[in-house]
Write a protein that binds this DNA or RNA. Structure first.
Length: 501
RNA sequence: GAUCCCAUCGUCUAGCCUGGUCAGGACACAAGGUUUUCAUCCUUGCAACACGGGUUCAAAUCCCGUUGGGAUCGCCA
């Protein structure tokens, strides 16, 4: 008798709901639905300082918007709850006691400072970093020593005790279709319970996946190097591990191809919605990443239409053996094309409804702050979408005429100024939190860039908004996000650099 | 730096497991056509097996190495 397939998406409610979460959720949902199993949403809010209820709420909204509906979760309950990790603390404590008793975990009283020193020492001596081997002081504490420290109420964490014998640890990855192996003595004694009594991801996910009877863990490949630890934990508990699938990471579309990040690209699902992307287009697009429905044995008709598909279609013929391990670049042009093709299928009513939904969402996404300065610029011929379009374009189309309003000696000088500004900004970027601070910063560094105030402001205006006609510069920069401003300075500089005088 | 992962057009990918087709499709781009401009739409074009060894009659496909890229090394997930 085969057991029921159970997959999960387990986001942590910190910050904006991430497009990568939707990507992973999509494949989990497809797998679960294909095998008539369950798709579970679990909230991993074990980081007390960063988790918020607002963020959790926007995860629900964003996934629902995409049609990625879950069968069990904190909001709707289910037979294996609670589904919010902060409400499962007693469960983790109960489980960790077993590990402590069996010697598969131990208390560690090292302070963050001590660990810092250890790290530096390891770095200097070219030793692999981590709390293990000879460096794991607390592992060798005897009963009396532990009791002393406990009685003295010294804060401590609990670490897993990785077996110290020679050997290897490995697990089977169902996407690579291969064993992935590592030497045991390279795996460090990971903290599994923090000093605040909350578990870390490693413990919580293993315990929950087991108790919630998760059968298939489909997640990003960033987890591969932690999976050894998870496998070790399963074996310490005497539990059967689930099957592992590690998907390639979505990449920034630039030449570096690092994993997709808000510093370079929009990644918030709320952003995609406010920008006017349709849920069916985004789902379709994500379903094309690392996966293809195209097969050589399809009829010509099927081949032609196989790249445009609904979530239901993807589920119906989903085949996990066709997932590729490569990390795909996020290509906005393709998304744009898909979005248009869905948009053009709309009836008039549907289209107006879409416009309405978009305006409404724009309003809630940016709130009163946005309206405050947009309304001053309202003109019949240039409405909100005209003034805010710079926020919703992935790449701007620069025009030479706009930059000429900066009255630089030549394009090359403009490029140099932007490059210098970018360098200065990236140095202080973390210290700037508001439009006012950005204003002060720009005025402060203006001289260092070799530009007049007027030159720098106009160059920045065009670089950031794509036009010499825009909303107030400082607010625009704050709204777009300074990291994306850096990217735009680069793009504008290279545009200017390519101009022949 | 150490470890692990990955590698077909600019991008997403099919083909790889089970060696033998002009390496196929989509997006982007370019050209032409339709159209009241633009866009849509139609046609055509451009464009890839990272490199080097091996195995074989035959390698994108199997093996090894090199190079390149990425991820991980947190009391974050």
């Amino acid at each position: 008798m085969s057991e029921e397939v159970r997959c999960r998406i387990a986001p942590s409610p910190t910050g904006e709901p991430h497009v990568g979460t939707a990507y992973i959720a999509l494949f989990n949902l497809c797998y679960a639905r294909k095998y008539k199993g369950k798709f579970i949403l679990r909230i991993e809010d074990t980081d007390q300082s960063r988790s918020t209820r607002e963020s959790e709420e926007s995860i629900y909204q964003s996934l629902s918007w995409l049609g990625l509906n879950w069968d069990e979760g904190p909001d709707i309950g289910g037979p294996f709850g609670p589904y919010r990790q902060s409400e499962r603390l007693s469960i983790y404590h109960e489980q960790i006691k077993k590990l402590l008793d069996s010697g598969r975990a131990y208390r560690c009283f090292c302070t963050p400072q001590e660990l810092d020193t250890l790290r530096k020492y390891q770095e200097q001596n070219k030793r692999p970093p981590g709390y293990f081997g000879k460096d794991s002081k607390c592992r060798h504490l005897n009963e009396t020593q532990i009791k002393e420290r406990l009685d003295a109420k010294i804060p401590h964490v609990i670490r897993m005790a990785v077996p110290m014998e020679e050997g290897k640890i490995s697990f089977y990855d169902h996407i690579r279709k291969e064993e992935i192996t590592r030497r045991l003595n390279e795996v460090d004694d990971q903290i599994i319970l923090k000093s605040d009594g909350f578990p870390t991801y490693h413990l919580a996910s293993v315990v929950d996946d087991h108790l919630m009877k998760i059968t298939h863990v489909i997640r990003g490949e960033e987890w591969i190097n932690s999976t050894y630890k998870h496998v070790l934990l399963y074996s310490a508990f005497g539990w059967e591990p689930p099957k592992f699938f590690h998907l390639g990471l979505l990449r920034n579309p630039d030449s570096n191809r690092t994993k997709i990040s808000k510093r370079k690209n929009p990644v918030s699902l709320r952003w995609f919605r406010a920008a006017g992307y349709l849920p069916q287009a985004l789902i379709n697009f994500l379903g094309l990443m690392g996966y293809s429905r195209y097969r050589d044995d399809m009829s010509d008709e099927e081949k032609k239409s196989c790249e445009i598909f609904s979530l239901q279609t993807m589920i119906n013929d989903f085949n996990e053996t066709r997932i590729s391990p490569t990390g795909p670049a996020f290509d906005f042009a393709k998304l744009e094309d898909l979005n248009f093709s869905y948009l053009s299928q709309f009836t008039d009513d549907g289209f107006y409804q879409y416009l309405n939904d978009r305006q409404t969402y724009l309003k809630t996404y940016f709130g009163a702050y946005n309206r405050l300065f947009i309304e001053r610029y309202l003109r019949p011929e240039k409405d909100v979408s005209f003034w805010s379009s710079f926020l919703f374009k992935h790449a701007l189309q620069y025009k030479r005429d706009d930059f000429e309003k900066a009255e630089c000696d030549n394009a090359k000088q403009g490029a140099e100024i932007l490059k210098k500004f970018k360098k200065l900004l990236s140095r202080e970027i973390e210290t700037l939190h508001s439009a006012d601070e950005i204003k002060d910063f720009i005025n402060k560094v203006c001289g260092e860039t070799g530009a007049t105030s007027k030159q720098l402001h106009m160059l920045l205006r065009v670089a950031v908004t794509g036009s010499s006609e825009s909303l107030p510069l400082y607010q625009s920069m704050a709204l777009l996000g300074l990291y994306r401003c850096l990217v735009r300075c680069d793009e504008a500089a290279s545009f200017l650099g390519s101009i022949r005088e």
